[in-house]
Structures are given as C-alpha cells and as structure tokens.
C-alpha cells in the first residue's frame, strides 16, 4: 500500500548546515597551514639563494683582495728597489767625494778609475815622501793591497800610478 502526502518532499542535504561550516572551516585552516608552510619554504629558498650569491661574492672579493694585496706588495717592492738604487747612487757620490778629499794639496790628480773592487789613481807628486806620508796611509787603511809605481819627470817631480784592490762588499748586490 502506497502512502501519499499532501506536502512536496524537500531535498535532504548530504551535510547539515553546521557540518558544512565545520568542514569549510577545517579545510580552510588546513589550506592556511599549507600556505604558511609553503611561504616559509619559499622564504627559506630565497635565503638559500641569497646565501649562495653571497658565498660567490665572498669568493670573488677574497680573490680580489688577494690580487690587491699582491699589487700592494709589488708597489712596496718597487719602492724598496727605487730607494735602494737612490741610496747606492748617494754612496757612489760619497765614495768619489771621499776619494777626492783624500788627495792632499801638494799632489795633483790626473786620472782615476774606480770599480767595485779596485781604484787606480794617476797623478803627480813633488816627492815620493809627500806621497808616502800624506796619501799612502789612508789608501792602505782602506784597501787590502796597494801598489804604487813612480816615474821621474824631467823637472824632478814624480808621476805615479797607484793600484788599490779591495774585496768589495757591495759587489753586485742588486744582482
């Protein structure tokens, strides 16, 4: 037997209103959690990317710093060489000056040849004694070996050649 009703049947929803609300709320929360996690993961990824960029930059800067340090050292080397050369020039000047100061008044200097380890002097002296008394002692105190040759001139004076040798400390120092 069939039952009949006077009212229209209402569609029965699968979920009730409050159930729907809960489901939406829970799903929304879950999506929010996932988005938050994704956001953090993305931030972490960017941090990692930036870190890698910085690491590359650090390597580059370190390499450049090393190059700059080398450049600095090279400038110091150039400066040291320059100063060394200038000091040696001043020494040459002083050596020549000292040599000329060494010549006493009665003796006339005609020529001198100075090298690293030797000095050859040509000159004229009124007497052998003046030479031996005034010029020979300082030469002997400076040089290890001193040899003098005298040639008598027609006027009675002497032409001399003095050969002086030393073991040079300065010899080719800049080689």
């Amino acid at each position: 037997m069939k039952a009949y009703s006077f009212i229209k049947p209402k569609k029965k929803p699968i979920f009730k209103e409050d159930t729907k609300l809960w489901l939406i709320f829970i799903t929304f929360s879950l999506i929010l959690y996932i988005f938050f996690a994704l956001f953090l993961a993305l931030k972490a990824y960017f941090f990692k990317q930036d870190s890698q960029k910085l690491l590359k930059e650090i390597e580059k800067l370190k390499k450049q710093t090393t190059e700059l340090t080398l450049q600095k050292e090279f400038i110091y080397t150039q400066k040291a060489i320059y100063e060394d050369i200038m000091i040696k020039n001043a020494l040459v000047k002083q050596q020549i000056k000292n040599l000329l100061d060494l010549i006493p008044d009665p003796i006339t200097l005609e020529k001198f040849y100075i090298d690293n380890d030797k000095l050859i002097i040509y000159g004229i002296t009124p007497t052998k004694d003046i030479y031996n008394l005034l010029m020979l002692p300082p030469l002997e105190s400076i040089f290890e070996k001193t040899t003098t040759y005298f040639y008598k001139l027609p006027n009675g004076w002497y032409k001399f050649k003095s050969e002086n040798y030393i073991k040079s400390e300065d010899e080719n120092q800049t080689k």
Binding site: I85, K88, N89, V92, K93, I96, L109, K111, F112, Y113, I114, D115, N116, T174
Partner: peptide, 9 residues
C-alpha cells in the same frame, strides 16, 4: 737610473 762603477775621471 743607477750610476754604477766603473767610473773614470
């Protein structure tokens, strides 16, 4: 420039 030996006067 370095002035160096031998020097002859």
């Amino acid at each position: 420039i370095r002035v160096y030996f031998p020097i002859d006067f």
